[in-house]
Design a binder for these strands. Structure first.
Length: 426
RNA sequence: GGAGGGAUGGCAGAGCGGACGAAUGCGACGGUCUUGAAAACCGUUGGGCCCUCACGGGUCCCGUGGGUUCGAAUCCCACUCCCUCCGCCA
């Protein structure tokens, strides 16, 4: 959520930011008007209320002095004011709710240095690593869904029997590989990041804090009976972990790493990327997330990117880094770098991590604050996050890249300790 | 799931219709004293919103939402959460 104050103090900047995203900037005027009206009415309400309080105190002391008639007179006066106050109060609530409703649906402003552009095609390729299009042999040009089914590592057919399309089941060494990848990603980050295992069913507030609600209701699984939502990423519980808390400056930055299942309905993407592991409803992911002061954010953004990238690099996969343009940024993000791995079998670049800086957008929704060591009062934190490792696509890229001429899969060096020394899958 | 009890400031804990943003204790911070520290003493010590360059002022917040009242932490209703006991259970 953007700070309403920005709408009053720099409406042009807000408008410009929304335009860069391709959003309709007319909401800015609506918010400005609502905000002005809301403050006007609440000031009025406060004044009336102050008078009622003063009168009531007066009534109290008059009764104590047994000057009952005078008291009764003031009582009547206060009653009338009370009625007026009630009306104003209702109006204040109404305006506040309306304002919040608007603000919750307005996306974050892109960072100044995020590239311009309207969509995917305008994203800037920052660099490409470990990729040589001519280096792949025929045996690596087999899609993972074929290889993995043949080797018994993946059982999509039975997963569909259990849960429907876009659910998958890993089996044997394939299941072990999932576990190995998660543990690898956690182990590489616990030096600095606190390991957390959060709940994966969360309340509505928790989903609202990260920006997944109300805008993206259709993307989320909802348990109606208990009014709980299945998290689409550990970002959701980790962001709310500190909700409504005030941290000391000395405690910052706070860093967390969490492995969770992630659930996504993938509404609107029916028929797209449906083969194998390209897009699934439920998957494992290890997420990195940090709370920090604004001035710490650039360094942390670089740090999280470096860590996510390091794991992919050390797994020996080809990848590239994209700087997302304003028009392609997620609603809550101010700046995002995507990491995409190259899958030679599917012959596609697969997004495996989105490393985002959310400025104070999520923190304001979550009411995440800190107390500066110097000065007084509280400030809103900044949040950042990125996938340390998202299993299905990395799993797929490994199966394709490391496929040997005999159709079996070499286990990347890095993962062998996590697979009891296993060198070949299948 | 059944039966009871509870929710107040950083923590502990009073208050149960009138001057209560809230006693008291602890903690924290500042000061006096001290070579330094401790002890003692004095003082300060929540957050949101609005107005103000500022000083300051107004208002809201005693789990949440509603109600009664001139006036609610205090009374009423609903909800949520927590604790204890019983049942069930990985």
């Amino acid at each position: 959520m953007l700070d309403v104050r920005r709408f009053r103090t720099e409406p042009e900047a807000v408008r410009a930011g929304l335009v860069r995203r391709g959003e309709d900037p007319s909401t800015v005027d609506e918010v400005v008007a609502l905000d002005a009206e809301s403050r006007r009415v609440s000031a009025q309400r406060d004044a009336v209320r102050a008078e009622v309080r003063a009168l009531s105190n007066e009534v109290g002391s008059l009764f104590r002095e047994e000057r009952n008639e005078e008291a009764a007179e003031l009582q009547e006066q206060s009653r009338l004011l009370g009625a007026e106050e009630k009306g104003l109060d209702a109006r204040v609530d109404e305006l506040a709710a309306e304002l919040r409703h608007r603000l919750l649906r307005i996306p974050n402003l892109p960072a100044d240095d995020a590239p311009d552009g309207g969509g995917e095609a305008d994203n800037v390729v920052v660099r490409v690593e470990q990729y040589d299009p001519d280096a792949y042999d025929e045996h690596q040009r087999v899609p993972h869904w074929d290889t993995a089914e043949q080797l018994g590592l993946l059982d999509v057919e039975r997963a569909v029997k259990l849960s429907g399309s876009m659910f998958v089941m890993y089996r044997g060494a394939g299941a072990a590989l999932v576990r190995a990848l998660c543990q690898l990603a956690i182990d590489r980050n616990v030096d600095l990041y606190e390991e957390v295992r959060p709940p994966t069913l969360v309340r509505t507030d928790t989903m609202v804090a990260t920006g997944h609600l109300p805008k993206f209701v259709d993307e989320a699984y909802h348990m109606e009976r208990d009014d709980l939502w299945a998290v689409p990423t550990a970002e959701v519980p980790l962001t709310s972990l500190g909700r409504d808390e005030i941290l000391d400056e000395a405690a910052l930055p706070r860093r967390f790493v969490a492995h969770t299942s992630c659930f996504r309905r993938e509404a609107g993407s029916a028929g797209k990327d449906t083969r194998g592991l390209l897009r699934v409803h439920e998957f494992d992911k290890v997420e990195l997330l940090a709370y920090c002061m604004p001035e710490q954010a650039p360094d942390l953004h670089a740090e999280i990117l470096a860590r996510a990238e390091g794991t992919i690099r050390d797994l020996g996969l080809a990848y590239r880094i994209l700087d997302l343009c304003a028009g392609d940024l997620g609603a809550s993000a101010a700046r995002t770098f995507d990491i995409e791995v190259y899958a030679p079998g599917a012959d596609r670049w697969l997004e495996v991590s989105s490393v985002s800086w959310f400025s104070d957008y999520q923190a304001r929704r979550a009411n995440l604050r800190y107390r500066p060591a110097a000065g007084k009062g509280t400030e809103v934190l900044h949040t950042l996050n990125g996938s340390a490792l998202a299993v299905p696509r990395v799993w797929a890229a490994i199966v394709e890249c490391y496929r040997r001429p005999d159709g079996r899969i070499d286990v990347p060096e890095l993962l062998r300790p996590y697979l009891r020394g296993l060198e070949v899958l299948g």
